[in-house]
Computed example of a mutant assay.
Amino acid sequence: MADIKYYDVILKPVITEKSMAGMGEKKYTFLVHPEANKTQIKEAVEKMFEGAKVAKVNTLNADGKNKRRGMVVGKTAKTKKAIVTLTADSKDIEIFAGL
């Protein structure tokens, strides 16, 4: 496993209707590095966003979809998502504040 730094763990936020609805319960969804584990994700969120205290992290791996272009068959890249639940007394994450 590669040595992953905390700033390489979180790739981008996932902005969907379901993830936006979870923000009321302090649940935030991120696209993360495929080799990152739950402790690395927790550490990255707490270091990158000031005042955020992580209660738990749920992860899910999504396999790449089969795609075809003419006779050539291939797959899209695998992805990994993390749903981060914050504690009740922690601050909200600012990147989602204006959405």
Score class of each variant (00 low, 15 high):
residue 1 M to H: 09
residue 2 A to C: 01
residue 2 A to Q: 11
residue 3 D to F: 06
residue 3 D to E: 15
residue 3 D to P: 11
residue 5 K to E: 12
residue 6 Y to A: 05
residue 6 Y to M: 10
residue 7 Y to Q: 03
residue 8 D to A: 13
residue 9 V to C: 07
residue 10 I to C: 10
residue 10 I to P: 10
residue 10 I to N: 05
residue 12 K to D: 14
residue 14 V to L: 15
residue 16 T to N: 10
residue 17 E to T: 14
residue 18 K to E: 08
residue 19 S to K: 02
residue 20 M to S: 14
residue 22 G to Y: 03
residue 22 G to I: 04
residue 22 G to W: 04
residue 23 M to D: 04
residue 23 M to E: 13
residue 27 K to G: 05
residue 27 K to L: 05
residue 28 Y to N: 06
residue 29 T to N: 01
residue 30 F to Y: 10
residue 31 L to W: 01
residue 32 V to E: 02
residue 32 V to F: 03
residue 32 V to G: 00
residue 32 V to H: 00
residue 33 H to Q: 04
residue 36 A to V: 05
residue 38 K to W: 01
residue 38 K to Q: 03
residue 39 T to G: 04
residue 39 T to L: 08
residue 39 T to A: 03
residue 40 Q to P: 14
residue 42 K to A: 07
residue 42 K to L: 00
residue 42 K to G: 00
residue 44 A to F: 02
residue 45 V to F: 04
residue 46 E to G: 09
residue 46 E to C: 08
residue 47 K to H: 10
residue 47 K to D: 10
residue 49 F to K: 04
residue 49 F to C: 00
residue 52 A to H: 07
residue 53 K to E: 12
residue 55 A to D: 12
residue 55 A to L: 08
residue 58 N to W: 05
residue 58 N to S: 03
residue 58 N to M: 10
residue 62 A to P: 00
residue 64 G to P: 15
residue 65 K to D: 13
residue 65 K to C: 05
residue 67 K to Y: 08
residue 70 G to P: 07
residue 70 G to D: 06
residue 70 G to N: 05
residue 71 M to H: 13
residue 72 V to I: 06
residue 72 V to P: 00
residue 72 V to R: 01
residue 74 G to D: 14
residue 75 K to Q: 15
residue 75 K to M: 14
residue 76 T to L: 15
residue 76 T to V: 15
residue 76 T to P: 15
residue 78 K to L: 11
residue 79 T to N: 08
residue 80 K to I: 13
residue 82 A to Y: 14
residue 82 A to P: 13
residue 83 I to F: 06
residue 87 T to D: 11
residue 88 A to S: 13
residue 89 D to N: 12
residue 90 S to K: 01
residue 92 D to C: 07
residue 93 I to S: 11
residue 93 I to L: 11
residue 94 E to Y: 00
residue 96 F to R: 01
residue 97 A to G: 02
residue 98 G to F: 05
residue 99 L to N: 02
